[in-house]
Design a protein around this nucleic acid. Structure first.
Length: 141
DNA sequence: AGTCTGACCTGAT
DNA sequence: GATCAGGCCAGAC
């Protein structure tokens, strides 16, 4: 539930990367997430958790989704539409320019979306940490 | 410095 | 099998 009683605006969003001192060479985890997100080939989708794990950092699914927010501001554009939750649902579709844009983009890439969910999620799933999917979607350590 | 949020995930009931 | 609750890290007020 949102407690934003004050309609000031959306909850502060990091400046798409350079939140602190951009003068510092230390890059934000945002770029890391973007880089992995771009690793997903066309027609494939991945999950937030997978990116978080593949990032090598201690990032969690929330951080990934959060970073995806800045994805729209990142350049080149990050294929956030290829990133869904572990259930294969287009959880972030509502955050796109239009709630249907995400599905449209996926369909354009050949991904079958049904009821805001990836039809053959297991089939189109792509693990950034394991580019050679055999059969197991879960890649427990 | 403390609090709250966040496009989530996993385990437990 | 479905629903509930907790936990996770990082950033902004």
């Amino acid at each position: 539930m949102k407690k934003y009683l004050n309609p000031k605006e959306l909850p502060s969003l990091p400046s798409a990367g350079k939140t602190k001192k951009e003068t510092n060479e230390k890059v934000s985890f945002f770029e890391t997430v973007f880089k992995i997100a771009r690793t997903v080939p066309r027609g494939r989708v991945t999950s937030y958790g997978a990116i978080a794990d593949a990032s090598g950092l201690k990032l969690t699914g929330r951080m990934v989704g959060w970073a995806m927010n800045a994805a729209g501001n990142a350049k080149p554009a990050v294929p956030a539409h290829r990133v869904v939750n572990s259930k294969g649902e287009l959880s972030g579709r509502h955050h796109f320019a239009t709630p249907t844009l995400m599905q449209e983009l996926l369909e354009q890439e050949g991904v079958v979306v049904k009821e805001d969910k990836i039809a053959n999620f297991k089939a189109v799933f792509w693990d950034p940490g394991q580019p050679t999917p055999k059969k197991s979607i879960k890649k427990k350590a």
